[in-house]
Design a protein around this nucleic acid. Sequence first.
DNA 1: GATTAGCAGTCACGTGGGCTGAGTGCCAAG
DNA 2: CTTGGCACTCAGCCCACGTGACTGCTAATC
Lengths: 339, 339
Amino acid sequence: MVSERSLAVLRAIVQDYVASREPVGSKTIVDRHHFGVSAATIRNDMALLEEEELIAAPHTSSGRIPTDKGYRVFVDQLADIRPLSAAQRHAIETFLGESNDLDELLGRTVRLVSQLTRQLAVVQYPSFARARVRHVELVSLAPTRVLCILISDSGQVEQRLAELDQDVDEGTLARLRNRLNEVAAGLTMEDAAIALSAETEHADRAHAAVLHTLAATLADQAKITRSDRLVVAGAANLVRTEQDFAGNILGVMEAIEEQVVILRLFGEMAADDGIAVRIGRENAAFGLGETSVVSSSFAVPGRDVSRLGVVGPTRMDYSQSMAAVRAVARYLSRTLGES
Amino acid sequence: MVSERSLAVLRAIVQDYVASREPVGSKTIVDRHHFGVSAATIRNDMALLEEEELIAAPHTSSGRIPTDKGYRVFVDQLADIRPLSAAQRHAIETFLGESNDLDELLGRTVRLVSQLTRQLAVVQYPSFARARVRHVELVSLAPTRVLCILISDSGQVEQRLAELDQDVDEGTLARLRNRLNEVAAGLTMEDAAIALSAETEHADRAHAAVLHTLAATLADQAKITRSDRLVVAGAANLVRTEQDFAGNILGVMEAIEEQVVILRLFGEMAADDGIAVRIGRENAAFGLGETSVVSSSFAVPGRDVSRLGVVGPTRMDYSQSMAAVRAVARYLSRTLGES
DNA sequence: GATTAGCAGTCACGTGGGCTGAGTGCCAAG
DNA sequence: CTTGGCACTCAGCCCACGTGACTGCTAATC
């Protein structure tokens, strides 16, 4: 059984170790925190914690550092997610509020989170599979080149260039535009993709080939759920904390550039609707040992959920990271919900 | 006076040092390259090169490494930019040819360059200041929300959400759309920005406020030359070559995340129309000591020029980097010219 | 005049021993 | 249950030493 005070000692060890990167000894603890007891007593508690595998000693005559399991207990039971300062909340409002479109909003978000947490930050593009087609626009760039633009009711714009094997004049283009809008407008992206593909079948009128090409292109566009894209910022922070990764930041950086790894990781974390933390070896399967991920979902109401988070060394300030990630995720959900 | 053979020795030193990261001694040179002379002779040549400050010895009893000046001579006079292998050229064609839009093309480009050179790669967005407005589209998302879309004749699409303080119905929107298209279509982005701003002045008709807002938004959009945006890939390569940066990769990574630094650097390199190389201390003013940049311009004909390149340690394989950067830049110029 | 062999000199680097100090574990007393 | 005390351990530091990879120089040779 782990006593109340033992847990307090664990909290002290985690906090001190995160702050100093040095194994924490019993004397340091009595000096810095005011438990009303002597170092010897703390040592007894530490022996207990070690038995529970919550802390470990790198070598015989050194202080202790938290194990992954220790961090887990800290995160689940001991960490206080203290709300951000007024200044920080203000920074979120103003910095993100200036964004003009989704790209810019996500770009600013990821930079902001990386600065608030001093970690590498990652944001996943919201999925728009359940958004609806607002409008289809065709713009002629050259006789055989048409730019297809698909606008969703969420303000998302997808563009694609279509090459035709036959000239089209403006009049024809206008008719095609009307036809495509009739077919697709109001449908969800998924349904629109199906409907447009079907449109491709009716090949029995003039400019059928053109319609075919355009419909196929648009169907293809509608299929793209951009939620498989990530925006990343703050890689410098990974380098800054290099010593905390047992020599293999390279692996971590590669995983992040791969994107797929993070996306799968986010997929697994999706079970937790709010904030979720994965610690150290729990990520070993992804080639990310010594690495922790703090992430939170954010949602456009009625649409799919995406995530944002930070990636850093196991030895990270979880309280701060969780607070910042949560605050920004909430802000994002709010603004995206409005538009 | 530096003899012919001395320069060959310099070349050998650069190549060996780049390959091995170890100071090169006279014996190593006679072993690995077949100069028909003895080590002592090479030593004499090396003494000469040292006098010219092309090479230096880290300490008394060690081999030599090239100085920045030595690399400069190597790049300007000795490096052979051997053309890429057929397989590599094929990789460029197929990998980049699959791209659907500009974003994707540049994203693929930067990843490709980073893989070919095993360095960090950077691509600057082409500027579209001289492109012309093809079409302006207004899409109503809600009574007081209009999505403004600006399409250039290069297929570039800029979107922006405008908030109005008054409802507009579809009919009004159609009239406004026509009006705006009359004003802006066919103008360059710069002129369109001016014309649209002017349009803002005529405030003497119904829905003037709406027109005002929309015109301002579009003018703002037209002003954006996206050439101040960078795409980056391959940060892991920077970490991989960490030991070559005298301990301050952090500075380099921060400079790259800043983007501004690289943009200014590219600005200075713009004088060279083709490929340009900046070596080590030449970049000290940018906070990039020990760092070299190899870049090449690429151009959409008739438009502004942008650059792509790689950033790496002074000790990099310049031949390979220059070859890859040049090949990809040429490919880009070609494909962008077509569309 | 260029090249070569030979030789003395220099200095980074690796190794091993000894010291130091932080921190532990345990025990007996409070 | 807590505390003071004490013996023990061991990473890290310093230093001295030997080794080897180079160089620079000189005198002989082509």
